[in-house]
């Protein structure tokens, strides 16, 4: 049975996010439209972004195209394991600040949420959220959530390898923080994050939501042995089994997400341990590769495999008492930086 899906952005304000949403839809072979309630059309540059497909409320609330709203509302079902209500559906994601409007939420046949355990940052970029929803609703094969009492103990280490764009890197870092990672390694061979100009720094940090994001970003290189037992390289163009059939969890696992854009991928043979590969099943992987979308899907799948804390169970208290630890310390360079909102306003 062929399913037809269209992705609808409701109240998206930022043209860059609208373009990323179109790329997310293209990755899964879906159409993309926007309900413009907050001035997207006025800010849209047709030469840069192409034709903007708009949809009005009447056409959107159509019984032939039942709505699946992606929103963290009370009572929403978890996106892992959720299914589409019919052979054709509209997947609706909300704008950056206010989310999906109430009229669409009321008209939605289903509401799904993306479970996140991050502190400080608990939302995804709208395009990243759309990519995760599209993956699990269309290509995720009904992969259900797992429960774990202490998911943080099974969370792999994460290395973002050579992102070629600072905003894409920032969005991927934000996704990692939203899914509960506290530390992320960044191989900055493309020079987009550390030691870059003030403007690039501000844009990247804004995409990472650094003013609220407590994640530590550590500079790493893919050329050195990082002393992990397992290395899993995951991406859209990686040659390997489907990502859901590869174990991405474990304390001694390093999950590497390379930027598979124009240039070739670095070799990961020097990282140490056994290198495994995992591939995201996409309908049209060659089209419109965006690092943040692929990275967020991989991180979401790792978070799904790591497990969710059972509902109603309070966060377990940390280890009590006073401890002292003897370690070999590494150079504490980089790290999440706070950005002055006044500086951001200039961009």
């Amino acid at each position: 049975m062929t399913r037809r899906v269209r992705l609808v952005g409701d109240g998206v304000e930022n043209p860059a996010n609208a373009r990323a949403l179109m790329d997310a839809a293209a990755m899964f072979g879906a159409a993309c439209a926007f309900r413009d309630t907050r001035g997207l059309l006025a800010a849209w540059d047709a030469e840069r972004g192409g034709e903007l497909d708009l949809i009005d409320t009447h056409n959107l609330i159509d019984r032939q195209w039942p709505i699946v709203a992606v929103e963290n509302t009370p009572g929403a079902s978890i996106v892992y394991g959720a299914t589409l209500p019919g052979t054709q559906s509209s997947i609706v994601v909300g704008g950056e600040r206010l989310g999906i409007r109430a009229d669409l939420l009321r008209a939605a046949a289903r509401t799904v949420s993306i479970p996140m355990s991050g502190r400080g940052v608990n939302t995804l970029n709208v395009a990243a959220a759309a990519a995760v929803a599209l993956y699990y609703l269309t290509a995720g094969r009904g992969l259900g959530p797992r429960l774990a009492r202490r998911p943080e103990e099974r969370r792999p280490a994460l290395l973002l390898s050579c992102p070629k764009d600072h905003v894409e890197a920032g969005s991927a870092i934000r996704s990692a923080a939203a899914f509960g990672w506290r530390t992320v390694g960044l191989d900055d061979s493309s020079r987009v994050w550390f030691g870059v100009s003030r403007g690039v720094t501000a844009e990247g940090r804004a995409a990472a939501r650094s003013h609220r994001n407590l994640i530590r970003v550590l500079p790493m290189t893919t050329g050195s042995n990082l002393a992990f037992r397992r290395i899993v390289v995951a991406g859209a163009r990686v040659d390997g089994p489907p990502i859901h059939s590869v174990n991405l969890t474990g304390r001694d696992t390093l999950l590497v997400i390379p930027d598979e854009g124009d240039a070739g991928m670095p070799s990961f043979s020097n990282l140490g341990g056994s290198v495994e590969r995992a591939r995201i099943d996409l309908s049209v992987p060659a089209l419109h590769y965006r690092y943040r979308l692929v990275a967020t899907i991989v991180i979401a799948e790792a978070a799904r495999q790591t497990g969710l804390r059972p509902a109603g169970q309070p966060r377990l208290p940390g280890r009590r008492g006073l401890t002292y630890e003897s370690t070999l310390s590494t150079v504490a360079r980089g790290g999440a930086e706070e950005v002055d909102p006044a500086v951001l306003k200039t961009f």
Partner: peptide
């Protein structure tokens, strides 16, 4: 354990 990641843990005293 990876509590101390990216540092390399040697030992810990739990008082």
């Amino acid at each position: 354990v990876r509590r101390s990641f990216p540092n390399v843990p040697i030992a810990r005293l739990q008082v």
